[in-house]
């Protein structure tokens, strides 16, 4: 390669590395701001802001979804399999909202530790399958669980 071409090649590599390092440093510095939501563990540990709204994300705990007496407010728990936080939300829930589903709620923490949401978004997972496959998977999973229980019991 001619000297001039080599020079241009190195110059381009220099630009790419320079910009890459700068971007990595900047993203690292703003890491927390790029997180879309806090997890229930972080909220329990007091890492989430108590005086202004933030987002809370987690899985809706099975059997926790209840309608409150006024008929409009839904109350449910979200978990990250470690800690659990209760959420109260008044409004229309997205189509994908259901127990076991990942959700992201926006709102504020009440002094009693309940998260009062003004918006609930559903986070869909990366799995795509027809209903009958999902049902079969669930059945085989439950069968596996009962078999395991029987084996450990015997």
């Amino acid at each position: 390669m001619k000297a001039a071409r080599k020079k241009r090649l190195y110059l381009i590599l220099l630009i790419v590395t320079g910009v890459g390092v700068a971007a990595a440093l900047a993203l690292n510095a703003f890491n927390q701001n790029l997180m879309f939501f806090y997890s229930p563990s972080e909220v329990s540990a007091g890492k989430a802001p108590s005086d202004y709204p933030f987002r809370l994300g987690g899985l809706v705990t099975d059997g926790s979804v209840k309608r409150l007496a006024n008929g409009l407010t839904t109350r449910f728990d979200v978990t990250d399999m470690d800690k659990t936080v209760s959420i109260e939300y008044t409004g229309i829930l997205p189509d994908l909202f259901r127990e076991g589903q990942g959700i992201v709620a926006h709102g504020k923490l009440r002094p009693d530790g309940v998260f009062v949401a003004d918006e609930v978004l559903a986070k869909h997972d990366e799995k795509y399958m027809p209903p009958e496959v999902a049902a079969a998977l669930k059945a085989s999973h439950e069968k596996g669980v009962t078999e395991a229980a029987r084996e450990s019991g015997s």
Binding site: D125, M129, P131
Partner: peptide, 8 residues
């Protein structure tokens, strides 16, 4: 392609 189990 079949319908999805969650997203319809």
């Amino acid at each position: 392609a079949p319908t999805d189990y969650q997203q319809g």
